[in-house]
Amino acid sequence: MNIFRLAGDMTHLMSVLVLLLKIHTIKSCAGKSYPCSLCFILLESSSGISLKTQELYALVFATRYLDIFTDFISVYNTIMKLIFLGSSFSIVWYIRRHKIVRRSYDKDQDTFRHFFLVLPCLLLALIINEKFTFKEVLWTFSLYLEAVAILPQLILLQRTRNIDNLTGQYVFLLGAYRALYILNWIYRYFTEPHYVHWITWISGLVQTLLYADFFYYYFSSLKNNVKLKLPA
């Protein structure tokens, strides 16, 4: 474990916590007898969260952590896997099933057919992988899928008029965690002999590059202290 990877994991955890906080806000807000102004805005405007991206992430964790009970790495590793699995599936459940949260989900805007991402990633994983075994192919699939999983969310943000802070921070943290992982891979490449994982590195790089324009608009909205807005 190195500082870059720990920072990356913590950033990833933070992004999940921000999303859970946002869902909690929507839930608690609708509980009020009279809609406060914030609640009114939250419930009326779409939450800006893409269910498609959340479902893709649940699939990413499900296919990546198949070895959670067979290969014990460390207590930290197992606990983090359980947190990511638990949170990603519960977020999908909330947006799909929860009587209040699902009202804030705008399915007419979140139209990205994520099936078009799943199939090519699966085919690619069958062709390009480190070892042609069931677990390894699914692990590679999860890497390719995670690289593109943010696309439905980024497209939804372009369509969402006013991106609220929590959603913007969620996407930023999600992009930042993989950027930190790239530093971790560079560090491990120079400090550990034989540490070479091209598949991981390239998909991690592609994933981070997909956030490039978001990062640009996110930082310029911070610098100019204006509302985050992605060009359509």
């Binding site: 990877r5 990511f84 070892k131 992982y181 991981t200």
Partner: peptide, 10 residues
């Protein structure tokens, strides 16, 4: 499991 094959990152 030998460390090499086990993926030790999240």
């Amino acid at each position: 499991t030998d460390q090499e094959s086990a993926h030790d990152e999240l």
